[in-house]
């Protein structure tokens, strides 16, 4: 159990590393150019991995509907936005506000799909997140 715990924490750290490094590149280029390099380099790295362990293109891939393939384009905007934000509001604010937005929109997506498991905890969680965001906006 120790290995999965370490890996899951490390994955979170690497999300931060990636945003920090892309943010630095965007200072010298632009957020969109940083996002472009992030995707090219990631694509090459995953191609090498996939070709070495095999199974890069699974049989079911052709059956996937077209909209399953738009995540990558959304990711370009996501990485560009993160690179733009981190240089302006810092790593902590970027991480917390993006996490907050992800959680609140995730609950909204669940509700739209008719998933209402754990509704009370979700509503309470959304309230806490919005309160935290309001706190960053209060003048001292």
């Amino acid at each position: 159990m120790t290995v999965p715990i370490l890996f899951a924490c490390l994955a979170g750290v690497l999300v931060g590393v990636s945003r920090q490094v892309n943010g630095r590149l965007s200072l010298s280029t632009s957020p969109l150019i940083a996002s472009f390099w992030n995707h090219v380099v990631g694509f090459v790295a995953l191609s090498i991995l996939g070709l070495s362990i095999g199974g890069l293109i699974p049989a079911g891939a052709a059956q996937a509907p077209w909209h399953a393939y738009i995540g990558g384009s959304i990711g370009v905007i996501f990485v560009a936005a993160g690179s733009w934000l981190i240089a302006r509001i810092g790593a902590v604010n970027t991480a917390l506000l993006v996490i907050g937005g992800q959680m609140v929109s995730g609950v909204a997506l669940d509700l739209m799909q008719g998933v209402s498991a754990g509704l009370l905890a979700s509503v309470l969680g959304v309230a806490l997140i919005l309160a935290g965001m309001a706190l960053t906006q209060r003048r001292r």
Binding site: G71, L85, I89, G101
Partner: peptide
Amino acid sequence: RLNPLHLMAAFGTGGLLTLM
């Protein structure tokens, strides 16, 4: 205080992550 535009942009970026 944080620029509200930056705050909304970061919050919206989290929404993009959910879609992605």
